[in-house]
Design a protein around this nucleic acid. Sequence first.
RNA 1: GGGCGAAUAGCUCAGCUGGUCCAGAGCGCCUGCCUUACACGCAGGAUGUCGGGGGUUCGAAUCCCUCUUCGCCCACCA
Length: 892
Amino acid sequence: MSEPLPPQYNPAETERALYQWWQARGWRNEPTGDPDPYVVMMPPPNVTDRLHMGHGLNLTIQDTLIRFERMRGRAVEWIPGTDHAGIATQNMVERILGKEGTTRFDVGRDAFVERVREYVRDTGGVILQQIRALGASCDWSRTYYTFSDQLSRAVRETFVAWYQKDLIYRGKYIINWCPRCLTALSNEEAEKQETSGTIWRVRYPLEDGSGAIEVATTRPETILGDTGVGVHPEDPRYATLLGKRVLVPLTGRAVPIVADDAVDKEFGTGAVKLTPAHDPLDFEIAARTGLPSIDVLTPEARMAETVPDRFQGLDRLEARTRVIAELAAEGLLVKSEPHTHAVGRCYRCDTVVEPRLSDQWFVRMQRLAEPALAAYRNGTLSFVPERWGPVYDQWMAGIRDWCISRQIWWGHRIPVWYCDGCGTRTASVTDLYECKGCHGPLRQDDDVLDTWFSSQLVPFSSLGWPDRTKDLARFYPGHVLVTGPDIIFFWVARMVMSGLDCMGSLPFTTVYLTGIVRDPKHQKMSKSRGNGIDPLAVIERFGADALRYAVLSGAAVGTDVILDPSDLETSFGPGRNFANKLWNAGRFILSNLDGPVRPLAGKYPNVVRGEELALADRWIIARCDAAVRETTQAYERYRLNEAVGAAYRFLWSDLADWYIEQVKPRLYGDQPGGDVARAVLARVFDVSLRLLHPAMPFITETLWQRLPGHAANASIESGPWPVADARAADAAALAEFGIVQEIVGAVRSIRAEYAVQPGQAIRVSITDASKVARRAMTAEEGTIRRLARASALGTGGEGHAQGAAHAVLQDGTTVTVPLGDLIDVERECARLGTELERLTQLIASQQTKLANEQFTSRAPEAIVAKEREKLGSWREQAETLRRKRAQLGCAG
RNA sequence: GGGCGAAUAGCUCAGCUGGUCCAGAGCGCCUGCCUUACACGCAGGAUGUCGGGGGUUCGAAUCCCUCUUCGCCCACCA
């Protein structure tokens, strides 16, 4: 019915076309009639991003969850989008301008913004294309962009609403300034890094010449901006100095010694130099004590005109060296010592940020945070894994105001207009041109908003908010948010707050935090470290399914995923191999389904009735049902690695290694049961493909398409998902076929041990067979013989004791393989002896355990019974071993 | 300075609510096989004081304490 399949699966050949087919056909995304669609918002990559492994992990997890829910018949909606990424994107275009020998300032604001727009038009969206390569089944018809007209409207709407509610204010505070990006940053954007540096002790002479006071600093250049020295009000050392003045070194400026509780008596000398323009604590103290502030830095972090001539224009670090030298020359440098402290760095360019006094816009967070914190504390918002909850809690509880203005040009311009004529200020959703009061011209604020201001609105702005659209009604709120823990504060927390404020409800109820992709040295993968893996290269070489398998099987809930960039084979080979295993199992099964497959009676998926089922059939059906149960539960609990593992083991270990092997003669020969075997194969393979489809969509769809019996243009992705069925449970079949496996294993072991030629047939005798073993032998004699390569399988063991190898199964059933001259009696004695010894020890400790009244009285009934049973079976095994050894005439 | 996480086979990791999943997988390693679905495979095999030390318990890789070593996050000690 179909052309022969090649023995190796070639993903490159099929994936792209398959994705197109899916798209053309349309995901079953449209939530028709489902009052509770499963909605997932894709974290928007930056427009200029290219796919990296972090995306690979994140998108795979989302797509797997989405496909699982979709197959279960739930309406799903997975919305993709991109982020205009203010600073990051602007930086890229500025770099290009740099190569052209110009700057954004040369080009001018409007032209520059146009230039970025063009750049984004050309290169942006590449990642959206690349996401397809992973197989992501998202709803492309609703793709959003955080800088589109629609989302810009939402941004303004939110800004104005918050401005009017007094949640947004403008003020002069110490912010983190990036001298490279030339903009203010939020606290979250200034990444604190432990850095080893130096701390200097400097002497400030008292103005009246009566002595000096020593202070410590890690940034000596800021001395030039000192406007005071602070001490603790109750510090006896300085009580008499309060109110006196000191001379700031190198400037000759006389500044007061002030008292403030915030000064730590224990640290250093207990006196602190105060530079209100460049330190948050100093700023606060200055505000309380009325000290002025002197800004000594230019935006580029060079020394400003406020410092003595000889320092002006120097870079902050040059200035530092110079200041130290001069202090030393003047004898004011007391000492310097190594010191490690946290230094902030720009999260976009890694430049050391400078705390700097400046006029910025802030969001007052307290009121927004309260309900967001409550949502977590009362359990309506939960984290997977749970341990991230406290992280969120701690941040929310200690929340600080959010600096949202950026002195860059690429982004949502702050919707505030100033009238220079009458000095008024107006926030407005629409552009304003004329002052209502004095009818003078208006000027819009120069700054743009933090890019996260627009990202935080995505759960509803992407659905049409502030309009009350149909989409908004159907898709808000969503369910699970899948993202990395590194953006809990940037994004997750803020979506929660804005969602609660703007929409009145949580944007999602579960936050699934993925791990981070690292290399074997546990270093985060990044381009800058050069330890990245290009997912597209992996997809090309191993296939998207192999990539997905690798990240899923490596991603237990909340653990990092380790991949080795220098050994792609080890990282992605197993996934490819598994796909190939599936391919070949499929090839085998399909090639045997040529004729019409008589559909099995019974309810989907597993139960077969009214057929003559072989033991192996009952066994695989029971195993299949267990796999369905296990896989489903694992997916439901976000344990994707376990879900994939369960399906993997069923397909490979049960179906391929045993069932397919068992079934071969029934298919090839004229032996009975061929039809049943075909039907069972078709069914359990169909189930396997379904179980694996969320994780490995391409290969499963490719094979499923070739299975007979489904409607034209049907896709596996539409489900249904296999349902576990209690009627498939078959403990007897599991036990009996288990014995078959044990016998075959025992014989194979013996063959290997005694180096029996692979082609040489041997005879196998079973003695002391348990009831279960006898049934197993009757039912699957042919299977045992074939897989063990036994010419005969008998139940008498007479006369074989000498010159035979033995194995005793758990239930005491003994497998005897007469090998004549091949047997070395001593060796066989030793083999059995070792086994016996192990058992004897087990029995001894088991007896102790069961003799312990503490155990028998306190442990649950069932456990005790189980333990008794174990002891019994071990005794039986040991007994048989002893008898065998006696027959062999073993010593001891 | 706080908080969190991790330490299990040579490597990368599973092991969920303490009791057979006599501690598992993949990769690597050793032995033998191109057995007509698959050498991206098949069969067999070796390797673990479950980081150290204490404790709780009838019973601990699993719970508690402590130590050691890594990693991460938060923090206005200049």
